[in-house]
């Protein structure tokens, strides 16, 4: 199988700060991968490069064998870690916007998920709580039938009950030839859903492994290993 996402010797420099240092990574189809690292380790930068929001200072990235560009963007569904939707819009208007924007957006799926989470499509974004806004953003992203989902902190502001629903939504909605890359601090919540993990430390890949290999090798969960590796 051809890799879905490949980073080859990727370095990203912000002025004097080196955010990514010679990162080489491959992600195969059919996996849910956790991108784990402390604040400022380069997680968001790594994701932004794969969806074309940032250009690497050196090195190359390819998605489904394509260089990052207009063609690869159709194959990638990206959830940023910030609010980027217009506050004055109603949820239904945003759904229309996504429908216009992305040919692989499934409007029915979006409405179905909104219904399950009791979110009214008539509400304006600015009247929604932080957690509900995050849910809406995730619904939009997961309603696209993409090959690669890049989710930057998808469950940070969401309560534990909704977190379970969201994780199950992620599990049941991604296509089996696709992959999901999730960056998060809430490792213990997502650990069971992941099958692979990447530890990012100061812009370097410290570890890439399967979750069960970590557990077999260290007799501890990924969450416990993380706390040990990144102890302050």
């Amino acid at each position: 199988m051809n890799p879905l996402l490949t980073y080859s010797n990727v370095t990203k420099q912000f002025g004097s700060l080196q955010a990514l240092k010679d990162v080489s990574l491959t992600i195969e189809p059919g996996h849910i991968v956790g991108l784990l690292g402390p604040n400022g380790s380069g997680k968001t930068t790594l994701l932004k490069i794969a969806c074309g929001l940032l250009k690497p200072s050196s090195g190359t990235v390819s998605v489904c064998g394509l260089p990052v560009g207009p063609q690869s963007k159709l194959r990638v569904s990206y959830l940023p870690d910030k609010n980027y939707l217009s506050e004055w819009m109603k949820v239904s208007q945003i759904i229309d916007l996504f429908h216009d924007f992305y040919s692989n957006f499934d409007r029915n799926k979006a409405y179905e998920m909104l219904g399950r989470l009791d979110i009214s499509p008539k509400q304006k974004l600015k009247t929604l709580s932080k957690g509900t806004r995050e849910k809406v953003q995730l619904i939009l992203v997961m309603s696209r039938s993409a090959d690669l989902y890049l989710l930057d902190e998808p469950i940070g502001g969401v309560d534990p009950a909704a977190r379970d629903y969201i994780l199950r939504t992620i599990l049941t909605n991604y296509n089996e030839q696709g992959s999901i890359l999730i960056s998060t601090h809430l490792i213990s919540d997502v650990e069971k859903v992941l099958d692979q993990i990447i530890f990012l430390k100061n812009g370097l890949v410290a570890l890439q492994s399967s979750v069960d290999d970590v557990r077999a090798q260290y007799q501890k969960s990924v969450d416990e290993l993380f706390r040990e590796v990144f102890q302050c």
Partner: peptide
């Protein structure tokens, strides 16, 4: 089964 146990399908 994976969805019921909330685990990765590969696992």
């Amino acid at each position: 089964l994976a969805s019921e146990a909330s685990v990765n399908p590969n696992t």
